[in-house]
Each structure stands twice: as C-alpha cells, then as structure tokens.
Nucleic acid binder design. Structure first.
Lengths: 193, 193
DNA sequence: AGGCTTTGATACTGGACAGTGTCAACTATG
DNA sequence: CATAGTTGACACTGTCCAGTATCAAAGCCT
C-alpha cells in the first residue's frame, strides 16, 4: 500500500528528493494562500503550482489539513528568520530594531502578511491563530517579562497587533497611499508612543 | 419556470409571508456565520436552521452569494440601528456616546463582531470588507470632515478599527479575562487618547 | 364539493474535489 | 541488456453540495 523511497535518482539521494518535493509543495501552497486566499488551497491546485502530481502530495502529507498546518509553520519560520537576529539582549530597553524588522517583514512580503494576519481569521487556518498571536506577543514583550501575567500589557499587545494588522493589510490593498518608509515609521511610532 | 405567490394563506398576505421567509433565512444565516463561521454557510444548512426548504431559498435569493451579501447588509443594518441614535450633532466635539454604542454593540453581540470583523478577512465575505470599513470610518470621523482626505486621520481610523477588532474578538474568545465594562472603558480610553 | 394555490419533502442532476489505484516511460545498477 | 526502483500522467471512487424539478398533502375560495 505504502510506497517506499530508497534509491538515488539523477544524482540526488532519496531523502533529498523527498524533502525537496515537500518544500516545493509548501512553498507553492504558501504562495497561493497569500495571494488567492486559504480557500484556494486544494490538492490539485497546489500540485499544479509545485509542478508535481497528487502522488507526491500524499507522500509528504496525509491530508490537506496537514499541508495547511505546514504552511502556517513555514510562515512563522519565515518571520522568525527575519526577526530573530534583532532579538534584543539588553532587558528593559525598547526593542526598536526588532520591531522594525517585524513590521518590515509584514510590509515587504504581502503573502506573509496575508497568511499570518488575514487568512487566520476564519476558515481552514483559524485553528492556528492562537499560536501566531502568542508568538507575536512573546516577541513584542520586553525580554524577561511575561505579558500574559499583566492584563494591561496584554491589552496593549493585542491592540498593537490589531493596529499593525489592519494598517498593513490596508496598505497592501492600496487603501493607504504612502511610501513604505512612512508606513514603517508611523507604525513604530505608534508602538512606542 | 418561476413560481408566483399571490394568494393569502393562514390569514397572512402573500408578500408578508414572502418577506417573513426571507427574514428567517437571513437571520439563520447571520447566526450560523457568527458562530460557525462563513464557511458553514450552505443552502441546506441555512434552510434547516430557518425551518424552510430549498424551494423557498431560491424564492428569495438567486444564489448563495446573494444570501451572503444579504447577511452583511443585515449586520451593517443591525449596527446602524444601535449606533445611529447617538450620532453626534454638534460638530467638533468627540462623539463619546456614539463610540460607546459602537463598541458596546460589538461587545454585546458576538455574532455581529464575528461577521463584521473576523469573517470578512477572507473567504466568501471578503468582498464586503471595504464597505464595512468605510462605514466604520465614516461613523468614527468627526462630523463634517472627510477622513479620506487627511492621511493622518485615515491612518488613525484604521489603527482604531484594528485595535477594536483584535481586542473585541480576543475577548469574545476568552483570551482576555475582564469585565465587559472594563473592556468598553479601555477601548474608549484608547480611542480618545 | 371541487378546482385552485401554497407548502414542504424529497428526488435528481451536474460539477468540484479529496483520496486511491494503475500503468507506461524513464533511470539506476550490475 | 536485464532487472528493479522511480516518476508523472491519468483514471477511478466516493462524497459533498448548489441548483432544479416533482409531487402529495393541506389550505383557500366559489
């Protein structure tokens, strides 16, 4: 029933081919979700975009839901990659650089913004919303503190995410006519208030 | 092909019955969209909840998309109804009462909040997001001004909607443990800043 | 009563799509 | 070359659902 991959092919090892195919699928799905919306995620649709066939979809994912989960993981990973180098080390100080990286990532990559901020509000990706918000809150908080403990801080964190989300998405859709730099500046200004 | 309703039935006129059925369908759909999400909107599902059959669905709506549009209209109408009495008449003054009514409506009615704020971010209801945001911005603006003209004001308006949206939805989901009054107060405070 | 409309239940059609199975062509290895 | 593993194309099944059509029972009017 199951099909096992063992031999090298075209100079590439079995595991490399396998992970490469998986990555192609996730990347294609991320692109689709970020442009056409999570509702456009379908097995056939993703395979076409990835240049593979269903056969290999089920090699890496037991179901469509598993791919959706992987897409969110990929989005969070992409965000972390851009933001982690700026994680502040000195406690107490405002994480200005980190914040700029965070905002910049969402402003530069429309797919990332849509997947993380918009598409998680309902539909197939909504189960992952908690996870994303938690990651964002944990990152935004001053290092060493627990924002979940302080209601006031938690409130501010949610407000900031909401503001960032709404402005960023509106800007991507052309509702706000302004330079990228101005947007980032306004956003970071609003946050340190 | 088409079926015409003309005669009274059980003491109710034809048009009354017809509009009553339509209202029942929209109400049921609103409830479903606000609890299970817009993805759960289906012809059969809505008819079951409304106590009607498909036959009468297509009496009032040519397609599922038309019902979705009607649900959004109904949500906007419900909001307007709660908020219009507090529309400020004196220009320049902060519309405190209006703001409280606006926030209160979204805090008191979880369905309303979800339909207007969450489910419009993607999927079937996303085409209506512009409309909703515009209505909100128009209402929040000081009377007599055009927020679309002032970029700074527009930015603040989007930020406020984002904040309200995120906090309100998080509160409904139990992510924020606080009294209703405290939430409304915090929100209105944040807005007049 | 008898012929009309209204009602609700249910059957039917067609398309989309997840998930599975098959197979011929292609590549590696000996 | 021959055998075994690999690949992609495609057929197939079952399910779900929008939208249409049918029909018997019940209500209305003369």
């Amino acid at each position: 029933m199951e099909y096992q991959v063992t031999m090298p092919f075209k100079g590439v090892s079995a595991v490399d081919r396998r992970t490469d195919r998986r990555n192609r699928l996730v990347e294609a799905a991320f692109e689709i979700a970020g442009t056409e919306g999570a509702g456009a995620l379908g097995v056939g649709r993703v395979c076409l975009a990835a240049g593979l066939t269903k056969r290999y979809f089920y090699e890496s994912f037991a179901s469509l839901a598993e791919l959706q989960s992987a897409v969110v993981d990929q989005a969070i990973a992409a965000m972390s990659e851009r933001v982690d180098p700026f994680r502040p080390t000195t406690p107490g100080g405002p994480p200005q650089a980190w914040l700029e990286a965070f905002v910049g990532a969402l402003v530069d990559d429309e797919c990332l913004a849509r997947v993380l901020l918009a598409e998680t509000h309902g539909g197939a990706l909504s189960p992952f919303r908690h996870q994303i918000i938690d990651v964002a809150i944990a990152g935004m908080a001053p290092p060493g503190s627990d924002p979940q403990a302080d209601l006031r801080a938690l409130l501010v964190a949610y407000a900031q995410i909401g503001t960032l989300s709404e402005l960023c998405l509106a800007w991507h859709q052309g509702q706000l006519t302004m330079e990228r730099a101005t947007l980032v500046e306004s956003l970071t200004d609003l946050f340190v208030r």
